[in-house]
């Protein structure tokens, strides 16, 4: 289904507001992962607001599509989205990382409704998603499982164990999305540990591979639809993104992977991003 121009403008505005919210959350928390949260905003927006069968009024519906944030450090983006959907009180957003808050530093499936899997140590989400996809088949449920991976995360060996497994069981109800921002904590992926031909690697493991601009909602939608209509096996969408997207001095910089945002930087970042905050 093609999105209308009006809807695209609306989703773009929501993405802008989410970025504003994420920056405010991390600034207020005094720590957090900025670059990788900003790079996956459109991916999460498209999934939750257009693609996934997910009703926030019934977040435990057995037939709901599942989303796993395997790159768990980007959880501010997920919190902001779940808050936008009404699952997290807006008054809670600025309590991120504070003692007693439900908003833990990494996703905790027991503390926040809508978080489908706890995450933090990288590489585990794809395997967990395979378990969910297999459970769907056993339960005769038609839900789809989406797993968002970081590119640095592909350096974890367990990802490739999972890649083999998804192919073995021909999991056409599983889609991985790669937030391909090219930067990890210590530097560029190419410099720290080159990933090689990611698409060719997954293809050789039996996956359908799709590529798109990870900040272009229309392109993301097309890729998601291609993934969903592929019946032979699992798909991966390699979404080309920019780490720290939306803030000029953060873009592509590993130094903004995770840190405190000082007041001066925060003011400039908000001025560049624009929009409004969903936090209260």
């Amino acid at each position: 289904m093609e999105l209308t121009k009006e809807r695209l403008v609306e989703l773009k505005q929501i993405s802008t507001n989410l970025r504003h919210t994420i920056l405010e959350m991390i600034h207020t928390a005094g720590s957090g992962h900025i670059g990788g949260s900003l790079s996956c905003v459109e991916i999460i927006t498209t999934l939750y607001l257009e693609k996934m069968n997910f009703d926030p009024r019934n977040p435990l519906d057995p037939g709901r599509d599942r989303f796993i944030l395997s790159k768990g450090h980007a959880v501010p983006t997920l919190y902001a989205m779940l808050s936008y959907l009404g699952l997290i009180p807006r008054s809670e957003l600025l309590k991120l990382r504070k003692i007693g808050s439900i908003l833990q530093g990494h996703p905790d499936m027991r503390s926040v409704p809508g978080i489908e899997m706890s995450a933090g140590p990288l590489g585990l989400g794809l395997s967990a998603g395979i378990g969910m996809a297999l459970a769907a088949q056993l339960n005769k449920e038609s839900y789809h499982t989406y797993v968002l991976l970081g590119d640095g995360e592909l350096q974890e060996g367990i990802i490739w164990e999972a890649a083999m497994t998804a192919n073995k069981y021909k999991l056409n109800n599983l889609t991985a999305i790669l937030d391909n921002n090219g930067v990890q904590l210590d530097g560029c992926c190419e410099e720290i540990m080159p990933l090689g031909q990611v698409a060719a690697k997954f293809a050789s493991f039996g996956w359908q591979t799709l590529t798109c601009d990870g900040h272009n909602i229309a392109e993301l939608m097309t890729a998601f639809e291609k993934a969903e209509s592929y019946h032979t096996g699992p798909s991966i969408i390699i979404a080309k993104t920019v780490k720290g997207k939306g803030v000029s001095f953060m873009e592509g910089k590993n130094t903004w992977h995770g840190r405190k945002i000082e007041v001066g930087d925060y003011r400039q970042a908000i001025a560049e991003v624009g929009g409004i905050s969903y936090a209260e």
């Binding site: 585990l124 395997s127 395979i130 378990g131 969910m132 459970a135």
Partner: peptide, 11 residues
Amino acid sequence: AMAAGFAACGK
């Protein structure tokens, strides 16, 4: 980690 996914779906 697969077992975590199964258990999260009631298995």
